[in-house]
Design a protein around this nucleic acid. Structure first.
Length: 727
DNA sequence: TTAGGATTACTTTTT
DNA sequence: GTAATCCTAA
């Protein structure tokens, strides 16, 4: 407690009532939450079982767990705290309460790919003549509907005729998931809302349990999460939310910044605290990041400051190619490490997209630099892992259609088409068709060989299911591999499965070490795999001295002495799909802000002149964010290279590139018309005046009277490119 | 009927 | 470049 400043201490000691903490980067946000939890338990005597701590990412949950566990005196107190991501906490609640909602507690969690596959099937079925929407867009839209609780809150809006086509897909999707006894990630929150809306007694039970609720990264919550929390809090009103609007980077997941802006409206008599002193970074880094974020119009104004020393300027390196960029990073690590006498664990390399890790990984390997890649795509999307998981999921939930289809597709391409249409026609699950294959043999016109294969498959799965409660996840996984390799379902070598087997083994061992023996079952493993796991198999706790590689999204909440930000190029960072939309650009800029503020001592930004995208060599401009950086805080290492590169590009790129030119990137197609539903009460964002709310419309809806947060009431002519709906 | 070759579509970011 | 999907010869 002594290590806290007076503001932090005051926040920690205010235990009751709604509290919002607006905490800038590096101001000790996580410290405040963890200390507060410990204070509540050890000094106030609040029962740890009454405390719920919600985080946004699995990584943050793990970090929080570690910190609290290290601070708390009594480990059994720690075990009673409910702490985890929104998805994992409410998923466990749904497992307990699923009977209220009519599904079984052994439900499968459909990940992104599963959901997309379901949608693909639907599109095929309805003979998608209207090609205007592809499965990805539909998935996004379904997600948006769920995260904004359209079906629950705005039924009439949902029945909009224009959306008939989409609504049909949405309903079909819901039906199929229900039949498969599967919930997608958004469902975990949506159904929790259903539970609390329609079953007040259940809500009461949890209100009684969770008397104190603490939420990290509040700026990243979406409406669905916000309403769950509101319901839970409404009895005791003890909500403690911590967030920073400047670090809101999950807009694509439905995060709604107005949750934090309207906190005082949601919770009357809310106390609002600010933490603006940065303890983490050098003065140069703090000022440079303040400068960057000031380019965003859409923000709560605050002053982040620091007492730390000036430090070095931010380095910018222009590489000739992506390979050279990776090599530069690797050799810089070695030289900086030597010069500053640091450890590998003091370094992190951040990037916008997961693929970027490959080349960097390669060059680190070549120089024998130990590293660890967090949350890379390579693990859960590897096909042997997805294949194995399909069997494991099917053992738990026979209705899990995506898993069954994945298994069957391997060997029965054509038959499966017939089975699918039969299933649709008769309204029976695929599993039950396969289970009773003899009844359908003639209908499906399949030979005895295939029939016998089906029978064998079902028998094996059923046999494995019998033992699912007695045996642990590792044993079952090993059996699956043995049985199905013999039956030619897998054509992998045994060592292909080594990784995942070891991973499951580790899970089981970890669980065994827990006091109440944890949950070593397959069921527990799957829950963990989809909602809690954080690291790849190659991560070993005891080998911590490694360079960290991760996306910027994953880096939030962490800090490192030296930060590399790689790939600062237009169309990569900011990403290509963001460049046409000013709100998205602001989110990218916040992302850059997050990246920069991870650095304690030194930040090095790199970009490459050439990069291969889809196997094609592409030339990109340096990111606009480099352009926006204040000259006083940066140091361009190879300035001739940088200039030369820009000169080559002078036709499309302003020569005075070190001065910010606001119009330079502004795209005339400012893509917002589809969001533009100007109405009374709608929150808007104006390019010149910032955030505001529409009070009324005048002159045949041509003029809006808007009350702006910063500049008061103004009459605004509604021009598309000046005004956007902000929430 | 299916293995395997040819073609296509895809890359943000996370739960 | 890769994974999913389509297509065709055996």
């Amino acid at each position: 407690m002594n290590s806290l400043n007076i503001f932090q201490r005051k926040i920690i000691e205010t235990v009751n009532g709604p509290i919002l903490v607006l905490a800038g980067a590096g101001s000790g946000k996580t410290r405040v939450i963890t200390h507060r939890v410990v204070h509540m338990i050890q000094n106030i005597g609040i029962s740890p079982s009454n405390i719920l701590v919600l985080t946004f990412t699995k990584k943050a949950a793990k970090e929080m767990k570690n910190r609290i566990s290290n601070m708390i005196m009594d480990q059994s107190d720690f075990d009673q705290i409910t702490l985890g991501t929104f998805h994992s906490i409410f998923s466990s609640i749904l497992r307990k309460e699923s009977h209220w909602l009519g599904f079984k507690s052994n439900y499968t969690i459909y990940d992104q790919k599963d959901s997309e596959n379901v949608i693909k099937k639907i599109l095929k079925d309805i003979n998608n003549i209207n090609n205007s929407l592809n499965y990805k867009q539909i998935k996004k839209k379904i997600s948006e509907y769920k995260n904004n609780l359209y079906s629950l809150l705005y039924k009439e809006k949902f029945k909009n005729k224009k959306l008939e086509y989409f609504t049909k897909i949405y309903e079909d999707y819901t039906k199929r998931c229900f039949q498969a006894n599967a919930l997608d990630f958004d469902d975990l929150l949506l159904y929790t809302n259903h539970l609390f809306f329609y079953f007040p007694d259940v809500l009461k039970k949890y209100q009684k349990k969770f008397k104190y609720i603490l939420i990290d990264e509040y700026q990243d919550t979406n409406l669905s999460q916000n309403i769950i929390v509101k319901k839970l809090v409404s009895k005791h009103k003890n909500i403690f939310a911590v967030g920073d609007d400047a670090q809101s980077i999950y807009g694509f997941r439905g995060a709604n910044i107005s949750n934090i802006l309207n906190f005082h409206l949601d919770y009357k008599n809310a106390k609002i605290f600010r933490l603006e002193q940065n303890y983490r970074s050098t003065n140069h880094i703090v000022q440079a990041s303040n400068n960057i974020i000031s380019f965003n119009k859409n923000q709560i104004l605050k002053k982040i400051w620091t007492n730390n020393e000036k430090g070095e300027k931010i380095k910018i390196y222009c590489a000739s190619s992506e390979e050279e960029e990776a090599q530069y990073i690797a050799s810089s690590i070695l030289s900086i490490k030597k010069k500053k006498n640091l450890k590998f664990e003091n370094f992190a390399i951040l990037y916008r997209t997961n693929i970027q890790s490959h080349l960097i990984e390669y060059s680190l390997k070549k120089k024998n630099i130990p590293y660890h890649i967090y949350g890379s795509i390579s693990f859960e999307n590897r096909k042997e892992i997805r294949d194995l998981l399909a069997y494991l999921r099917l053992i738990i939930n026979p209705n899990d259609e995506e898993s069954l289809l994945r298994i069957l597709k391997k060997r029965n391409q054509r038959t499966i088409k017939n089975i699918l249409s039969l299933s649709k026609e008769k309204g029976i699950t695929i599993y039950s068709i396969i289970q009773n294959i003899e009844d359908y043999q003639s209908l499906l016109k399949i030979n005895n060989k295939i029939k016998n294969n089906f029978i064998k498959l079902i028998l094996t799965i059923e046999k494995l299911r019998i033992n699912v409660k007695q045996e642990d996840a590792y044993v079952i996984a090993k059996n699956v591999i043995d049985f199905f390799t013999k039956q030619n379902y897998f054509n992998y070598k045994n060592e292909d499965f080594q990784f995942i087997l070891e991973y499951i083994f580790q899970y089981v061992e970890e669980q065994k070490k827990l006091k109440n023996k944890g949950n070593t079952s397959l069921f527990g493993f799957l829950q963990c795999f989809y909602l809690e796991k954080h690291e790849n198999i190659d991560y070993k706790e005891n080998e911590k001295n490694k360079v960290s590689l991760m996306t910027i999204h994953l880096s939030k909440g962490l800090e490192f002495s030296i930060i590399f930000i790689a790939g600062l190029e237009e169309n990569l960072f900011p990403s290509k799909s963001s460049t046409l939309n000013s709100l998205k650009i602001e989110e990218e800029r916040r992302l850059f802000y997050v990246a920069l503020t991870r650095a304690k001592d030194k930040a090095i930004l790199t970009y490459a002149k050439h990069r291969f995208i889809w196997g094609e060599k592409k030339e990109n401009l340096p990111s606009r964010f480099i352009n926006e950086m204040n000259k006083n805080f940066i140091d361009i290492i190879n300035i001739e290279n940088h200039h030369k590169h820009l000169l080559e590009k002078k036709k499309i790129y302003s020569l005075n590139h070190l001065h910010h030119d606001e119009n330079h990137y502004n795209n005339k197609n400012f893509e917002n018309s589809k969001y533009l539903k100007i109405k009374k009460g709608v929150k808007v964002f104006h390019k010149n005046f910032g955030l505001g709310i529409i009070l009324e419309l005048q002159n045949k809806n041509q003029i809006a009277l808007i009350k702006f947060q910063q500049s008061g009431k103004k009459r605004i002519f509604i021009k598309l490119d000046k005004l956007v709906i902000s929430s």
